[in-house]
Simulated scan of single mutants.
Amino acid sequence: MSNRTTATATPHDPEVNVERRWMSVVFMQGEEADGVLDMIDKNGPEAAIRHLSQWDYGDETRDAALVNGYVYEEIPKSPTDRVVRNDSAGYALTYNQHFGYVSLLRHFEPDVGEVRERLGPPVRFGFDRQRTARRTNGLRL
Score class of each variant (00 low, 15 high):
G126M: 11
V26Q: 14
G69T: 05
D87K: 02
M1Q: 00
L141P: 12
V25W: 07
R116K: 09
H98L: 05
W55D: 14
T5N: 04
K77I: 03
A89L: 11
V115E: 09
P79A: 15
A47L: 04
T6C: 04
G44I: 08
V16I: 07
T10N: 08
E73V: 02
A9D: 04
R131Q: 13
E46G: 05
A47V: 03
P11R: 06
R116I: 10
N43Y: 07
E15Q: 12
T10P: 01
N68M: 13
I49K: 04
M28R: 10
I75D: 05
V102M: 10
D81M: 09
Q29C: 12
E73T: 07
D87L: 05
M39E: 14
Q97N: 11
E74L: 10
R20A: 00
W22E: 08
V26A: 12
D38G: 09
I49F: 05
L52M: 13
S78I: 00
L104M: 08
D59R: 08
S78F: 08
E109Q: 00
T61G: 06
L119F: 15
A9M: 02
R82E: 12
S24L: 15
S24C: 13
E109P: 00
Q97E: 15
G138S: 08
I40M: 13
Y57D: 15
E117H: 07
G100I: 04
N68Y: 11
P76N: 14
V36A: 05
R21L: 12
E32W: 04
R140Y: 09
R82S: 12
Y72D: 00
G58M: 11
R140V: 01
Y70P: 01
R20H: 00
L139T: 11
R106V: 08
I75F: 06
N68C: 01
V67W: 02
A9I: 02
T6A: 11
P76W: 06
M28E: 11
T80R: 13
G100E: 11
M1R: 00
A64Q: 11
H98T: 13
E31V: 00
H12E: 11
R135H: 09
G113K: 05
R140K: 03
W55Y: 10
V36K: 01
L105N: 06
E73R: 03
D56F: 15
R21A: 12
L66N: 02
S103G: 13
R106E: 04
N86L: 05
L93V: 01
V36N: 01
T8F: 15
V67S: 11
F125G: 14
V16D: 06
H107L: 15
V71I: 06
G44K: 04
G69A: 07
T10M: 07
G120W: 02
G138M: 09
V16H: 00
V112P: 00
D87I: 02
R21F: 03
Q97D: 13
G58L: 07
A9Y: 01
N43S: 12
D34R: 02
E73I: 03
T94V: 15
R82W: 03
R135T: 05
A65H: 03
P76D: 07
E19V: 09
R4K: 05
W22V: 04
G100P: 10
Q130H: 01
I75Q: 08
T5Y: 04
G120H: 01
F27R: 14
K77S: 10
L141S: 13
